[in-house]
Each structure stands twice: as C-alpha cells, then as structure tokens.
Design a protein around this nucleic acid. Structure first.
Lengths: 213, 213
DNA sequence: CGGTGTGAAATAATTCACAGCT
DNA sequence: AGCTGTGAATTATTTCACACCG
C-alpha cells in the first residue's frame, strides 16, 4: 500500500549511465562509490544521483557510499535487464550489419536471435551470428524465436509497413534507426536512434559555442 | 538590446524533428501547416510547437498557420545547418563503415571529408566516398581538410586518446558513438549516440508496459 | 569527518486560456 | 471560424541544505 512517487523519465535515462559508471569502477576494483564520484563521472551533481537512486530504495551507507557490487544488480533489475531479451534485426543494410556485428549487446542481456532482409543475394548468408531470413517469413520466425524487440533498420519508405508487421507478429518494443516517427499501437514501445538529429544538435552547439546565438 | 529569454535545451532537441515534419509536408505539397498538425506528427501539443518557435521569432500567420517553405530555412538557420560542415570518421569498424555509407548526411549539409583507421589492411582503401587515412596523419589531415566535426567510432579503450588528438588538432565538435563519456575541453562539444543505452530504455519501457513497475 | 536520504526551495519545461489577427 | 503569440498557471526536475548515520 505504500505510495511511491512517480519516477521521472529523466531519472530512467540516467540509470543506464550510472550502470556504465559502476561497471567501470568495478573493473577498476572499487568496492564502494560515493554519489559525488558517480555523478562527476557523468557531469551531474551528487544530489541528483542520490535523488535518482532514492526513487527506488535506500541503497547507500552513510559515511561510506554505495556498494559497487550491490548496486549494479539493483539497477539491472530496475531497468529489467537482469534477464535475457530476444531481439531481431530488420533490414541488413549498413546499419543492420553493423549492429549484427556489434559485440556489446550479448553480454548486456540482449540476444540478437534473428535477422531479416528482402534482398535475395544476402538471404541465407551469415552476418554476425545470424543467418539472414527472408522478410516474407517475418511472422513465422518472430513467433518461433520468441522475439521481444525489433531493431528497425530498413529503408525509410518501408519502415512503417515493416513495423506494422512486427507489431502484428507480437513484438513488444521497437528500436528505430529510421529517421522517421514510427506509429505503433499503445501496447508497443518505440525508442529511436537518430544520427542526423544528433549531428544537428552538435552543429547547433558548436555554432553557439562560437558565440553566434 | 532586446532581451530574449534563454532557449530551453528541450526546444532545440525538438527543432530537428520539426524540420523533419516540415520536409515531409513539403514533399506532400502542403503550403502551410498549423501548430496542431506539426505537433501531432511528433506526438506533442500545439501549444508546445508555438512556444518553441516563439523563442526564435514570429513565423506564423494567425488563421493560416506557418508557411512550409518559409519555416524550413528559418529552422535550418537556427540549427546552423544552412551551411556546409566538414566531418571526419575516426575508426572504420562496423559503425564507422556504416556511417561512411550512410547516404543521408550529404544532403543535410554534413560532408564526410575524411576517414581514419589504424588497421593497415584498410588504410588506402575507399569506403563510401572516402579514402581511409592512417590515424598517424590525423593532425595533418584534419587541418588540411578543415574538419569541424569528428565522428568517433574507435574501440572504447582508445576513444579518449583519439578524442584528445582530435581536440588538439582543432576539431570543434565530437559525435561520440563510443559507450563511454568523452572528456574534451570546454571549447568543444560532444553529442553521444549510445545503442546500449537506447536498448536499456526500451527494455524498461516494455517491461513497465507489461505492468511490472 | 565523509556520506546518505529527503523535505523544502528554486528553476525549468509544459500546458492552459485567451486576446487579437485574417 | 481557424489560428498564432504569449502571459499566467501548472507540473516536472534539479538543487539546496541539513538531520542523521558510520
């Protein structure tokens, strides 16, 4: 019955970064870490770190800080990455191929279990650890491999159409690499990664730093 | 002497998205667009759109909306992408290669003018439109090609070191594809693109939608 | 001391709501 | 009628500051 306050979106976005910082400290042999240390790693205040973690419970020890080995699994559990997620890559073009070869997903609990494309010349070939399937078999394969998350890397014009089929096939989340908003039902979540947008932000910031406001 | 209010970071992040929306409406032949239409494209309110644009001036016509052809260049000018930016890719691995082949940067005003790697077997080969240079020639080439922006795709352990050299060579902004915070002086800007983080956000959201809070 | 956890205060971002233009 | 631009109100997020613990 205890009434927890709602968790700010901004807090959740930082959680991944805390995890990163903690894993680095762990690799360096640190046993505990203070909110100040953790915060300065990512350029925020100690108060912010304590507030963020405070939403989920009391993990620290006054005078000592947070146990590195203790906090890591707590954050993984909060982010729901204390389990295996099955993902599939849709579209084995430049970006899809890069992601299939990206070695950092597996250890993080994201298992890329399938890859799809429409191009006959690469269907059946092996990219990374996956045999490329035909997009025609999407529904069947998504079901068989119990895919939770779809990584959308197809060309922009067919993005929405492929996304629709992913959703119908039962996928629960979409990681969208397409520079376009994807419409899914309200039961499915989308997170977008947008290179052009990132570059545009950078251009703005660089120019602003030059004194042109 | 007129005192403009400071521009919220959140507003700048949305500007790229407005531009996207406007270009789509332009392609579809629309002449004007209302704040409501533009907003619903990206899932925000009309008031938000008007407020955002209002920070930069009065671009709309009451009763009509915003001129599509008029607003696009205004936003480009605000974002400082009404000019050519020279970028270089550092690290021609999976991601670097994908970016060099990404066809969408050129038309947006970002010209990838150079690519660097340390791997002898790819130095001198052509990837996308670039001949790969040795990282040893970084300083010289950055200067010669007048690189403004560095796209950092090297392996994590050498990321900071390469970034330091980029900064020394005079680069003004870094687009960081490394899952690690990059430290640059205060005269240089960094924007990060972090795949793992995006996946983690997605995992959290999908699980939350499942009712596990 | 050095550090957490957390009310209270301050600041930032969003939405409301409406005067005024076409 | 349809829509912008913007004060005022609201809501979200961050920071302050301090009681309390090891």
């Amino acid at each position: 019955m205890s009434e927890r306050p709602p968790i700010p979106r901004a807090t959740v976005k930082r959680l991944s970064l805390y995890l990163r910082g903690l894993e680095r400290h762990q690799a360096e042999g640190a046993v505990t870490v203070s909110s100040r240390t953790l915060g300065s790693d990512l350029g925020i205040t100690d108060a912010q770190v304590r507030r963020d973690l405070g939403y989920f419970g009391q993990f620290g020890q006054p005078g000592i800080g947070y146990s590195v080995d203790g906090l890591i699994p707590r954050i993984k559990s909060i982010l729901k990455i204390d389990r295996e997620w099955n993902a599939a890559v849709f579209g084995v073009g430049n970006i899809g191929r890069a992601l299939l070869n990206y070695p950092r997903f597996g250890p993080k609990g994201f298992h890329i279990a399938a890859a799809f494309d429409i191009n006959e010349s690469i269907i059946g070939t092996k990219v990374g650890a996956c045999q490329v399937c035909s997009l025609a078999d999407l529904e069947e394969q998504v079901l068989a491999a119990e895919i939770d998350i779809g990584i959308l890397c197809v060309p922009m014009p067919v993005a929405q159409e492929v996304a629709d089929r992913m959703v119908t096939a039962g996928i629960r989340g979409v990681l969208n690499f397409t520079p376009r908003r994807i419409d899914v039902g309200k039961d499915v979540d989308v997170v977008s990664v947008d290179f052009s947008r990132a570059l545009e932000q950078l251009a703005y910031q660089v120019a602003a730093a030059d004194g042109e406001d």
